[in-house]
Amino acid sequence: MQRSSIAFFWITAFLSVVFVAIQFVRPELDNPPVTADLQAPPQVKQILRTSCYNCHSNETRLSWFDEPVPAYWMVARDVREAREHLNFSKIGKLPAGQQRAALFESVSQIELGAMPLPAYKRVHPESEITPEQLAVLKKYLSLATPSEATGAPEASAADLQYEKWMQTGSSTPEVAAAPNGIAFMPDYKNWRAISSTERFDNHTMREILGNDVAVKAIAENHINPWPDGTSFAKVAWYQQPDDKGVVRTGAFFQVEFMVRDSKKYAGTLGWGWARWRGADLQPYGKDKNFTSECVGCHNPLRNTNYVFTEPIRGQQ
């Protein structure tokens, strides 16, 4: 036998043994009971079952080619992450507003081509959501959205909030930092507006404000990536229709920040994330891992440096 053939034999044998051995390292991936399955019309349910339930429910069915390690390791990890983010087998436990928000976010992720995961779609072509199916989901959500927000503060509450704010004026109260250490930036209200949004999914309206670095970047068309030092604030209010049918800004709902520092925040897409809710500015999130929610939602936008806003120009 030639030397190279011998080497070939031993390398193959060694790798085969390794391959067989790692098959026994199998993280658990079971299907816990379905406790509060999504309630939706059959047509909608069918689409979600075919395209989403394999990862986003407790009814995971693996294909034969998902079983061998290392593919299995990735599948198990993906399913675990998917269920943590959105689990249709438990979604019924959430308040109606949160369920709707999850579904709207899902449709956005599908539309952006982020879901089902492209790699998953390649090996599971039946999971691809067709434009017709997407239209079915959108129509269902549009009709299922009540015309007014549930849980929105009454106009009188918004009035009280406004009166209180008038009295405290520009003196900023003590505000606790976000759990990831980002301090509140009271000057956000003096930044320039770079866009606005009407959100019919949750009956809020928003202004997106940018600091000087952001404004300069827009003027110079330097927005992919945005330069370090860029900060955005997205301010949200409840919609409050007046007696002429014009929707006004009602009670302040929240302000969210994105702070660009490609090195410091390398672990969270190069952005620092923070959110304060309510007029008393309570920091959002139990611990610093709250940012996984931000990252999960912004992650599909890697072509726009993870920014949803398409900025308007003219601030300089």
Partner: peptide, 19 residues
Amino acid sequence: LSMLGCSSDGPKVSAEINH
């Protein structure tokens, strides 16, 4: 091939000014 899950396609939007 068994690591297909690591590659991915780009999303369908691009970074543009809202002219």
